[in-house]
Design a protein around this nucleic acid. Structure first.
Length: 507
DNA sequence: TTCCGACAGTGGGGTCGCAAT
DNA sequence: ATTGCGACCCCACTATCGGAA
């Protein structure tokens, strides 16, 4: 029953302790019908079996009142969500809305609240994939490591968890790397400097250029090639030149990990927006590949010539990769324990317009998620002193706090401030409280509105990765990945950085 | 007892495809 | 032709719990 999940979710949310959350979830999983286990695991980890159904925050407005008595089963709810997803073409939005209303009319208030959070993509119960892995392990009586391993290979916890509940460890071990089915990609942590990254890895590391493109996983079985993104979406049709590259390799049973990127004629990278736009385009691909050709650089191999490599150390996997693809397709790499040598490699990557480097432990096997810190990215950081122009009220745990800052640079020509973007990152709870009070003193207009305009008096030091062209902001440029470092009470708005300084970073 | 790894939460800019206007 | 929405590309950071040291 849906009500059982809604109650479990509420209990999970009410307990701060992770072990208690795991207990609540495991108890639910222990009594769920095996036929509905996949749905239960998906919903309680904030996912939908359909992945996405075309309903977002807007579609969740103006829903009907709940009924009094709970009767909906998981299968009923899930079938309705499938019907919503299946809508397409003229009139589909109205039909979607009708079906969604039908769903919400058929459930109680507590179920509505759960569905709203689930469909809105913000479960806010303090448990998602990571906690659910533990809960599945507990309910199925298997080691969590077995669940994690199967998840890496299958990439979809509801399927893995359902198998674990039914078939235990044996069922989990049956998950193998399958060519044509994407694997959860290994992710990197970050470090503030190359020295810090090398220290974390303990001496010798493999350094690789960090290219500012789109992560791809290439699968080839004989003549069949499939290309997947980080979220395991199939983008083969959008990147035909990549499929051709893989098809031209001598080995015909392959899974490779790499980055696809648009390069200019001189070999320097295009801005990320160019690569992303090209990769996302589904129409006119044949013409686009002439005007914006994509290049691919591989940095890992999960399977070469039919041999699975995931459990091998990085050094061995890379050796296999280097044997399988020509050097022109390899991400430039340097294995070193020497900081000076590494620094020169990093500086060279930046000079050529790339994002930074990734430092890798030579010993680490391939594992999904961030566990193990086998990969550490290092990127340079810019900073600017900007003026807070406005602030937005926060959600969730930031409710009641002014959270999101509108940032502006000084325009010497007009004496006014030009907005360059927003940020909510880098703020401690203490700082959030302080700035909320301070902002209400500076409020220049109604403070009960979503956005609270401020007199431009506060200077804040902002870190960011770069400046990009913006179709949204008046200066035609925006900061990428802006975050707060600290307030600068010692500075006045007249000391703030200017739009000219920012524009110089765009070029 | 202290430290630190892993998670969840809170949102950022940009772009595409699609349906509605 | 334009606008709004959902989805997904890139992502940084803090708070918290609980196992490791």
């Amino acid at each position: 029953m849906l009500i059982d999940l809604a109650r479990t979710s509420a209990a999970v949310a009410a307990d701060a302790a992770r072990l208690a959350k795991i207990r609540h979830l495991a108890e639910l999983l222990s009594r769920v019908d095996p036929d509905e286990a996949e749905i239960a695991i998906a919903y309680l980890s904030g996912e939908l079996p359909q992945r996405q159904i075309g309903v977002g925050w807007r579609g969740l407005q103006d829903l009907p009142e709940p009924r009094q008595i709970a009767s909906a089963t998981l299968t009923q709810v899930n079938d309705l969500l499938s019907r919503i997803k299946a809508q397409a073409g003229p009139g589909s939005q109205a039909t979607r809305k009708d079906l969604l209303a039908e769903l919400f009319r058929s459930v109680t208030r507590q179920e509505q609240s759960f569905l709203l959070r689930l469909l809105g993509g913000e479960l806010r119960q303090g448990a998602l994939n990571g906690v659910m892995i533990e809960a599945v392990a507990k309910a199925a009586g298997v080691p969590a490591a077995e669940v994690r391993r199967a998840l890496t290979l299958r990439g979809w916890l509801p399927a893995v968890g359902s198998a674990a509940l039914t078939g235990g460890v044996d069922a989990l071990r049956a998950f193998r790397l399958e060519v044509g089915r994407p694997v959860s990609p290994m992710l990197a942590q970050s470090a503030p400097s190359l020295a810090a990254a090398l220290a974390k890895l303990g001496g010798t590391a493999a350094l690789e250029w960090k290219l500012d493109g789109v992560r791809v996983q290439a699968h080839r079985s004989g003549p069949d090639v499939r290309i997947f993104t980080r979220t395991l979406d199939d983008i083969t049709a959008q990147v035909p030149e990549l499929a051709e590259v893989v098809l031209a390799l001598p080995a015909d049973d392959l899974v490779l990990d790499g980055e696809v990127i648009a390069l200019r004629a001189d070999g320097r990278p295009e801005p990320f927006q160019v690569t992303a736009s090209r990769v996302a385009s589904k129409t006119d691909v044949a013409r686009l590949r002439e005007s914006v050709p994509l290049s691919v650089f591989f940095f890992d191999a999960l399977r070469v010539a039919g041999a699975d490599l995931l459990d091998l150390p990085d050094a061995d996997r890379h050796a296999a990769l280097a044997g399988a693809v020509p050097e022109t397709l390899l991400t430039p790499r340097l294995v070193t324990a020497d900081l000076d040598e590494g620094t020169a490699f990093y500086a060279d990557a930046l000079r050529r317009g790339h994002e930074g480097v990734v430092a890798k432990s030579a010993a680490t096997p391939y594992a999904a998620g961030r566990r193990g810190a086998g990969w550490i990215k290092v990127k340079p950081r810019h900073t600017l002193d900007l003026v807070v122009l406005a602030a937005e009220w926060g959600h969730g745990r930031r409710q009641g706090k002014l959270s999101n800052l509108h940032l502006g640079a000084r325009d010497p020509a007009t004496g006014r401030f030009v907005m360059l973007g927003k940020t909510f990152k880098g703020l401690t709870d203490e700082l959030l409280s302080w700035q909320t009070e301070r902002f209400l003193e500076l409020a220049d207009g109604p403070a009960d509105h979503w956005v609270v305009p401020l007199r431009p008096e506060l200077v804040v030091e902002i870190a960011f990765d770069g400046v990009q062209r913006s179709p949204r902001y008046p200066g035609g440029m925006a900061l990428r990945f802006a975050r707060v470092l600290r307030y600068r009470p010692d500075k006045t708005p007249q000391d703030a950085d200017t739009v000219d300084t920012v524009r110089a970073l765009l070029l």
